[in-house]
């Protein structure tokens, strides 16, 4: 592992007309590190994530990504072909709603295999074996491989989406509320799975969530956003146990104690 970060973000801003999406966000992300972005709805978390994953172009600021050859490339200066290639090989994007990230009308196996075929894999047997392997790693029974995700429960769909993203061995995964809309026991299993995969594969991840428990479980570092600005950032345990910004204090104290 090198001493260089995987992603360097500097003064990133996105405006929707005169409205602020996110404003002057800077941070570095190191390989294998999980960064949580927390904040209430409308605080600019998802805008930031979409800018970083090049799904949106920012109004100003830069983001450079260290490619597999060790060279930093400016994301917003890459051609669309290069960005899309990065998106389906070295990156993953886990949507809150699995239907956005899956092809709902093709089988689970094909969903997992699509990225392999997109990078030129042309051996059916190998693609299928990889799909079987990945389904088992996300705890989906092998006999569901030919079922469409439409026949899957919410938790299974989310796990399938994760398998589909990780099959090409990405180095960076973006997650937008990965546990949103799931009931607590399914959430717990999913978080457990994610934590295992992230550790095993040494993934770097940027996780957007409004759920502080998710942030605490998954991430080493976190950024708290409000009104498009980062109000506090630091190690997750430090931020949650000793919040400094008034807004973070409010957020932490708002957690419902059961």
């Amino acid at each position: 592992m090198t001493d260089e970060p995987l992603l360097r973000v500097s003064a990133l801003s996105k405006f929707y007309g005169s409205r602020v999406g996110c404003d002057n966000v800077s941070f570095d992300l190191w390989p294998g590190e999980v960064l949580a972005v927390v904040g209430e709805s409308g605080s600019g978390k998802t805008t930031l994530l979409n800018c970083l994953s090049t799904r949106l172009l920012p109004s100003s600021g830069t983001a450079s990504y260290r490619m597999r050859d060790g060279q930093f490339r400016e994301l917003y200066r890459m051609s669309e072909a290069e960005r899309r290639f990065l998106m389906r090989t070295d990156w993953g994007f886990v949507h809150q709603n699995p239907a956005d990230g899956l092809r709902m009308t093709v089988s689970a196996g094909a969903n997992v295999g699509e990225r392999l075929m997109a990078v030129g894999d042309r051996h059916y047997g190998k693609i299928r074996a990889t799909a079987v392997d990945w389904l088992s790693r996300v705890e989906i029974d092998e006999d569901r491989i030919d079922d469409e995700p439409r026949a899957f429960s919410g938790g299974m769909r989310q796990r399938l989406q994760i398998a589909r993203n990780l099959v090409t061995g990405p180095r960076l995964v973006f997650m937008d509320e990965p546990t949103g809309g799931l009931d607590v026991s399914v959430q717990a299993r999913l978080l457990d799975l994610l934590r295992g995969l992230v550790t095993d594969l040494g993934l770097a991840a940027i996780v957007v969530t409004h759920d502080l428990a998710v942030a605490r479980l998954l991430s080493q570092r976190m950024m708290v956003m409000k009104d498009g600005r980062v109000v506090e950032s630091g190690l997750t345990d430090r931020v949650l146990d000793d919040p400094r910004a008034p807004y973070t204090q409010l957020l932490v104290s708002s957690i419902l104690q059961v």
Binding site: E80, R103, V106, R115, M117
Partner: peptide, 18 residues
């Protein structure tokens, strides 16, 4: 335009799977 034809093989994959 970007020669992204992985999806075409997804269809053939589905054929073989089914």
């Amino acid at each position: 335009a970007l020669e992204e034809y992985g999806l075409m093989h997804v269809k053939l994959y589905e054929d073989i799977a089914k």
